[in-house]
Amino acid sequence: MAFKLDAIEKMNTEDKYRYMNMLLTAQLSSEEDLLANLSNASAIVNVAFDRINWVGFYLMKNRELVLGPFQGRPACNRIKYGCGVCGTAVKERRVIRVENVHEFEGHIACDSASNSEIVIPIIVNDEVFGVLDIDSPEFNRFLELEEGYLIKFVDKLKESIIVNSLK
Rank of each mutant, 00 (worst) to 15 (best):
D155T: 07
L157W: 01
C76T: 12
D135M: 00
I123N: 06
E146I: 00
K152R: 15
M60S: 05
N53M: 02
D133R: 04
K16I: 00
K80N: 12
I52S: 10
F104H: 05
E103D: 13
N164M: 14
R18Q: 10
W54P: 00
K91G: 00
E146D: 15
G84K: 00
A43E: 09
A109W: 07
G84P: 09
T25F: 11
E32H: 15
Y19S: 12
D133W: 05
F57K: 00
A109H: 12
A2L: 06
A26Y: 13
I122R: 09
I108V: 01
E64A: 09
V124M: 09
R51G: 14
A113D: 15
F3P: 01
I118Q: 02
E138V: 00
S116N: 11
P121D: 03
P69C: 07
R78P: 05
L166S: 10
I123C: 03
R93I: 02
P74L: 12
H107P: 00
L150W: 04
G56E: 01
N100C: 05
S30L: 06
T13H: 10
E64R: 13
F49G: 01
A36G: 00
S114R: 08
A26G: 09
S39Q: 14
S42W: 05
G148L: 02
V45F: 03
D33N: 12
S42A: 14
D50E: 14
S29T: 14
V119Q: 03
R18N: 12
K16R: 15
M22A: 13
V90S: 11
N115M: 09
C86N: 06
F142M: 06
D135L: 00
I161T: 11
K158Q: 08
R97S: 12
F139D: 06
S39F: 12
L67D: 06
E144F: 02
Y58M: 02
A75G: 14
N115V: 03
E144P: 01
V124C: 12
G130A: 05
M20W: 01
S42C: 09
K61I: 11
S30G: 02
E146S: 02
R51T: 06
R94S: 15
N53F: 05
L65W: 09
R73P: 03
G130C: 04
S42F: 07
V131Y: 02
L24D: 03
S116M: 05
E99W: 00
Q71E: 08
E127Y: 04
A43R: 14
F70M: 14
L67I: 13
I79N: 11
I122Y: 06
A41F: 08
V124K: 13
P121T: 08
L143Q: 13
M20H: 04
F153G: 03
R18P: 08
A41E: 00
G68A: 07
M11S: 03
G130F: 05
R51Q: 08
D126P: 10
M22D: 13
K167G: 07
G87D: 03
H107M: 10
L166K: 15
A36F: 11
A75F: 13
N164S: 14
C110E: 09
I8V: 15
G82N: 09
K91C: 03
Y58G: 06
I161V: 15
P74C: 04
M1L: 07
Y58I: 07
V55Q: 01
F129L: 10
N62L: 04
K167V: 10
V66C: 06
F70A: 13
C110R: 03
I79Q: 14
R78N: 13
G148A: 06
